[in-house]
Design a binder for these strands. Structure first.
Lengths: 220, 220, 220, 220
DNA sequence: TATGAATGAGACTTCATTCAT
DNA sequence: GATGAATGAAGTCTCATTCAT
């Protein structure tokens, strides 16, 4: 068991979209992870635009040439980062799904929001990277939305299981509204003073709960 | 009476923050407007990062030196653009404020959302510029938020007039939640198919209405 | 009697070399002086290269166009400044010449050095401007040397009067050696700690006195 | 034994202060030398201010990007040039040091001056670069003075060995006076007619010798 | 004569990417 | 495969000077 390695457990050899070569050997995978870790930190610290590929390679202590063996260009690093976040978020959510199912809807929503909030806290680069891609790769927004898309699917699924009675694609709309508005509010709350931040968090729950209750008022 | 709202009402020569020289004569104002128009179009079309100051000047048919007489650097153009949007949005909102006041709360919310949605439709660069600034000028987000801030103030004010009974800063929180979530949903709806877009718009209204009703249920 | 004006008494209408138009009216002369004062301060403070003509005009509170009516280009400002220094130094020296004549040679040398040192103190831009010109206008070094040239002439003259016995151009060489070496040492002493500075000043006197005594040893 | 003198004796890969990357391979060192040669010629011919980095790169027949791999900016080229002169001067002086030690003081001074004069003749850019730096990098004058500083140390050391009897820091002052005044006079002599130049050279020796004799008159 | 907005060549510097070793 | 020196197009911004008003 190698410590400090499974901090970010990457599912074995999933084909990350923009990558030039899938790293098969342990050493290569380590290097890719190192690049992404460094890139993440630098993007957050200095903004995507002002980070150079050479700086990333230097900080990651690998030659620039090697970096370009894994990533065809700078944008690919951003993409891989986004993909990694999507994977991570998915894991977190899977972990609480069973708990969610056993709670009353209101509590489930609150727990879901708290979990999502915690994710923002744990990975401050999440929304940052997310925004960057709009600028740098407008045509690749599909991938960027991956994280959201999975969340939305999961939310729609959960709702359709526990709150039946609507058409199937109605759940999609509701889930989208929930995920998007909550995502924005949580992100915005990051830049607020702690006390105000907590209040926003509570208010976000209220927004969501009253919305859901408008569909399933019996949830009391 | 809406507080913090007519701050930007002085039409003509208000001192725009980042500008090097305030254009006093008609010719200069024309030039500045031309620069902003061109920059807006290019930012939307190609993304902020890949637009160059020389390209803007060339497209606007003015010498690069003249551009730099008005704007100290590239970022200032972005800022001026954001300021211009804030002014425009203010005007639109002022135009419907009186109508809003005479409607039942639910209808007022719906009308407000429709107006805001129309603004997004009229000025597709609005949210785009807005997002750009996060990357290019992280420290200047305050200015970028100007449009939001004023909206939030206006909304808080309107709520406190028509729906009394809460503490004064509670209105701020509610208004913030409303404006931020609606903004995101409307923006996101832009990239959806028309029919789905309309549905999202309706759903946004529902989100907002049920949230407000959780505070003032008598509004029926 | 206008105060604050004769601080730097410029001999009436001497034709300064590089100037476009000799200022004949009081207002114009005031402007030219203001330009030179400002330019002097800025050159010293920021280095010649980084001062712009527009900055000089702005600081002097005259339009840039007017500046260009008196000076054909930036270099001309530097030249005029050097010429002004030459005039000033001349005046200072004339003022002590009579005293010098009545002193033993050693004391006269010491007094001359102190006077020259005081000039450096009063006009810190003197040597600074002097050096600048080497770079900016290599072909105009002749004018730059003006200040020195006058000093050297005066010194040669004084020597030939009080210490006869040498050929006429020998006095020139001696005077040149004296003025150039003293000038350098005094200038260099400016950047030293005060106590060390004083010591250098004394040592400079010793250098000069022993040199002169090698020609006129009877001076005891 | 001359203190502070063999500091720069390490021939090859001494870390030159302002350089971005130390050229390790033969090809790179050639390139750096080429850049410096070209820069030297251009600085002397056209003055520092009007030489551009692009022109240097073009003349040296290397891409501008390569130039910037070795030098972080234009000023660094100047600095490297000054450092190269310092190294050269050191070598010249080391070569005559043994001779100096075996001569009577007067003759040693004369030989030292001739050597220094020859250096000015061999490297006409020496004092030119030296002066430039005052303007371009006022804060870096320390480095520029390097050549002088070492000379002064060497002179002080030599004096203290052959002419004992003074306090240790008195030698510093004397050496400083000697080096600075001689340097100026030699430099100035460059721009004079040959016959007058020689006379100045002799006069410089006289200045120095009479000064030194005022301390050690027995040196006859 | 007086003004100051306008000009644009050109300065310095960066950095994503390649390819010879 | 691994490396990192080399590349040069392109970017941002300056500023001495002019000339229409």
């Amino acid at each position: 068991m190698i410590r400090g390695f499974n901090k970010r457990v990457v599912k074995e050899v999933e084909p990350v979209p923009g990558m030039r070569r899938q790293p098969k050997q342990a050493r290569s995978r380590e290097r890719v992870e190192k690049i992404l870790d460094v890139a993440e930190a630098m993007f957050i610290a200095e903004g995507c635009k002002s980070v150079t590929t050479n700086a990333i390679a230097a900080q990651a202590e690998i030659p620039i040439g090697s970096l370009y063996q894994f990533f065809p260009d700078k944008a690919a690093i951003l993409m891989a980062l986004a993909a990694r976040y999507a994977t991570l978020l998915n894991q977190k959510l899977l972990a609480v799904v069973s708990e969610l199912d056993s709670l009353p809807l209101s509590d489930a929503l609150a727990l879901g929001i708290d979990t999502y909030d915690q994710f923002h806290e744990d990975y401050p680069g999440f929304q940052a990277i997310y925004m960057e891609m709009q600028d740098t790769l407008p045509e690749l927004t599909a991938i960027e939305a991956a994280a959201d898309v999975e969340l939305i699917h999961a939310a729609a699924n959960s709702l359709s299981q526990h709150c039946p009675g609507l058409e199937v694609d109605q759940y999609q709309v509701i889930a989208m509204v929930l995920v998007k508005s909550v995502g924005t509010l949580l992100w915005m709350s990051r830049s607020q003073a702690p006390s105000f931040r907590l209040r926003l968090l509570e208010e976000t729950k209220r927004l969501v709960q009253s919305y859901v209750q408008s569909y399933w008022p019996e949830d009391r």
